[in-house]
Design a protein around this nucleic acid. Sequence first.
DNA 1: TTTTCTATCGCAAGCGATTGAAAACGACGT
DNA 2: ACGTCGTTTTCAATCGCTTGCGATAGAAAA
Lengths: 390, 390
Amino acid sequence: MPRVKCIKCLKEETVLRAGFIRGKQRFLCKECNYHFTIYKERDNDKPSRKNHATTIIDIAKAIGISVSTVSRALKDHPDISLQTKKAVKQVAADLNYHPNTLAQGLSKRETRTIGVIIPDIETYFFSSILTGIQNVASAAGYKVMISQSKESHETEVANTHAFMTNWVDGLLICHSKETKTFDHIKLHLKSGIPIVHFDRVCDELGTSKVLLDDLNGGFQVTDHLISQGCKRIVIVIGPPHLNVCIKRLEGYKKALKKNNMEFDPSLVCHTNLSIKSILENVDAIMKKDKSIDAIFSISDIGAIRTIVHLKKKGIKIPEQISVAGFGNEPMGEIIEPTLTSFNPQTYKIGETVAQLFLNHLIEGENHQPATKVVKGNLIVRSSTLRNPPD
Amino acid sequence: MPRVKCIKCLKEETVLRAGFIRGKQRFLCKECNYHFTIYKERDNDKPSRKNHATTIIDIAKAIGISVSTVSRALKDHPDISLQTKKAVKQVAADLNYHPNTLAQGLSKRETRTIGVIIPDIETYFFSSILTGIQNVASAAGYKVMISQSKESHETEVANTHAFMTNWVDGLLICHSKETKTFDHIKLHLKSGIPIVHFDRVCDELGTSKVLLDDLNGGFQVTDHLISQGCKRIVIVIGPPHLNVCIKRLEGYKKALKKNNMEFDPSLVCHTNLSIKSILENVDAIMKKDKSIDAIFSISDIGAIRTIVHLKKKGIKIPEQISVAGFGNEPMGEIIEPTLTSFNPQTYKIGETVAQLFLNHLIEGENHQPATKVVKGNLIVRSSTLRNPPD
DNA sequence: TTTTCTATCGCAAGCGATTGAAAACGACGT
DNA sequence: ACGTCGTTTTCAATCGCTTGCGATAGAAAA
């Protein structure tokens, strides 16, 4: 017979054991027909809430008013009298009060957080876009959450879901190279959370997007090469499902046409944008076609590695082969010869992306997806300068 | 007399106007002594909750059980029967349920988010550390929130507060160059939220930290230069309050001592790590002292810009001056000559930082701050190779 | 059968803040 | 003194989920 007193009638005789519950002995008082368990002695002096962040409840208690008044006072709601506001703010400051973002988010159904998914944070192109995004986002009071897909479709999908089901207020995304299907995006479109694409976008989705000046960039680089006397310009592009490749190629063609040169498909190197693939393709085409006098690599890293590669083979740049890139990575002004490249204005891109998100937010329901193209500019350096101006 | 029925007694005669409230007419029923306002007709058919994310309440209703059971079932709580669990999970999947992170966080008082503050995301060193952090963090189910101080103490402080008062579960920070006081960190130490420092740490705070192999790095680079026959090695360092500088300088001295060479303070260039300052200092010292035959720049970017600068002046590298850096930035293998540098293992650093955070979390109360040094390794390239091995 | 046990569930109190709507309180005119 | 109002506060429901603790119906034991 357990020596336990019933919590209600305080008798001992009537108490009998009644199984276990979550590892603890449970009792039943026959008289009261009352089940109970002996839990840990609760500290009666309630020091439990020690070192606990101050809440509006604390403020309310301190002043002796209700929490709703405190809440409104802190928000400068017009209904609250000036002196109450002053008192509340004073106490809030004294108690070092900071609103609990989670609770606010739960109530207001927003997180003031935006998720950004990029292929690779270590790539200057993306990290500088990020800076642009962060600048305008944080100016608007938004926090930025970043994740990288590392060019894997799978992790991109996982990250997308993680973000979208975690109450980000918006998603800014640049797809991985691998991504060819967009179900993971479609799935979340109807949720109403703004999604903005940039750089590697998807046209079939009705989202807002920010594009580089790809066509113009391709055009300008090619036109510049031609102006330097290049006749047989190889263009190194990536997989055809990336529309940035298509666009730059288009610009290339446009420049040829403008200069009355014929487009030779054999001068187009299709690679997967990996260094290995790029160099292999370059080698192959140069072996096959000795007339080549310029290489336009769609990416700066590609161009740079190409330069290193060609130099190793004793080829003079730009005298024998001119090389140009796209992206204006910092490395471009370090390498020798310094790299001619198209500057896509990455900061501007980031800022525009974030701005588009904010627009979507304020437009709300009647938001119309917008497409913005950020103008870039050609940076001419020595890797293509055959006729140095005097 | 208003033609309005009292909401309670439904009589009209007893109702009289009673002022306005927020722009709307208010009424008072004398009989009931009840104040009320006629608000917009609430849609009775309650289609209000349209396109609203499914919650455990929906699941509970669908099955006809209580929300607590659903909650437990989803968490695989042992109290719940197998079939209930299966049913719950099935319905959850059917309804495309995703837990509301905010609500979970509010209940469990955690966000499963960790904040990272770095000086500059566009710098490879930091972005690669970030990758390391993200890898282990996301493996442990934590999201990562990033902000950059852009080397400004002020924004570092602001970001710190933003993070700490926004319920991140931990803070990983590398201080800005400007940061000399740490009140913003101290302020939050007692909150109990784990803080881990890395690279630019602060000793006076009792936090866990991850350090580069600075001393050893400084030693190895210097020792290597000496082994290549350099006698007068300039070391270019940054502001003395950055202990990474001190440490690398120590390594430098240690290597000198090991090789029985005397330390010459005039060979130490104190810069603020800006390119301008570095190049000016290099110029100055080379002008003053013609015997210099090597430059050890504490940062790769510094070393790289130095190489470019010296080459422009017609100085042969490494024949006349050897140049070595620290950091193993990707640019180092592109520049000509390729740069000898100490590889600090940035990924490893990031992983270690995150790991330390996780450790702190599981150790809880009785956590003892740890200091970890991530071993690096010397990468010898041609910028220092005077006696190429055959 | 009656008395114990269990295995499962449900109730309800939070978590911290927002917000619709009622209440309290003076002040004023008549 | 009463009816009217405007101003300032307070009440209480919610947001979606976790969890301490109590309830209940069969199963097992007595």
